[in-house]
Design a protein around this nucleic acid. Structure first.
Lengths: 153, 153
DNA sequence: CCCAGTTCGCAAGCATCGTGCATTCGCGGG
DNA sequence: CCCGCGAATGCACGATGCTTGCGAACTGGG
């Protein structure tokens, strides 16, 4: 799918405010509301827009702590890694998980209520996992930026 | 604000699909549409729901590469760190940035078109920054999980 | 037992959405 | 230069979904 400048403007507006009305969108991008509606539908159909989400306040919901954890597995390169993937999927505290190249095997983005809950997670769930060999944590002190954005559109 | 199980259910549904209608929401949480509407409004008013965003496909928009970068600053603990914060804000390729405790000072979440664009960013923008002393990168090979979710609700 | 405060579902009025249709714009062939 | 075709656009209208007033139901305290 080929995107023109109107599409880009629509995407930028929508990723900033997903509940904007087509009429308001029309004013921003200088198009009629019906066209905005059609282009939105096309972008959703094409999979450029994967969906919409509510942004929830982590602090107000009692998740004050965030951490980035680098994990090294022991059974390196074995097919059993899907086991770790299942573990990741089963832990709701793991917000994101990436298999990475570098000196770590995985990078996890963790949420927890507080430092105690975080330590509990690491020592009671993560470290005891049979494949986990090493865990190195960085605890988030301050969030400078946390865009939902996808990149420099 | 005190949240009951209905509110939690609404939040879970909304963070999964922010464009769900109140009628559909009503079926999921076993409430009337009007109550869902009222509770949504209250949750937005209280700041529990910060807003809504469209989830865009990074791949379809040409941002195939993602990386986690740990950065160490040279002028450690000085007031001039706001300079680095301004740098972070000015770089659209930096999706998220956290000041962390651990052996690194900052952790960045980076998007780029490809490996070349990523290397260009690191060597032409990040490393030349006067305060940056050390940069260690982990390039994302595979995303196991990438919840917009805020934690185990 | 009664009353006040809160929460609930219903229904009506209203804003928003999305499709049909006629028009315009841009481009390539004659 | 003109014509014709297809894509894109704006308008209008029917349909859908939102929201607020209202009376009923529930709850806790006196």
């Amino acid at each position: 799918m080929q995107l023109d400048s109107f599409d880009i403007a629509i995407l930028v507006a929508l990723q900033h405010d997903g509940s904007i009305t087509n009429a308001a969108l029309a004013e921003v991008v200088n198009l009629s509301a019906s066209q905005c509606s059609r282009r939105r539908a096309a972008l959703e159909q094409a999979g450029v827009i994967e969906g919409y989400s509510a942004r929830l306040s982590a602090v107000k919901l009692g998740f004050g702590l965030r951490a980035i954890i680098r994990v090294n597995l022991s059974s390196h390169g074995q097919g059993k890694e899907s086991d770790f993937a299942r573990f990741v999927a089963s832990q709701p505290q793991i917000r994101s998980a990436f298999s990475v190249s570098g000196d770590a095997d995985y990078v996890l983005d963790i949420r927890a209520r507080d430092l105690e809950a975080f330590a509990d997670f690491v020592h009671r769930h993560l470290l005891p996992h049979p494949q986990v060999a090493q865990v190195r944590s960085e605890i988030v002190l301050k969030t400078l930026k946390d865009d939902a954005g996808v990149g420099p559109l």
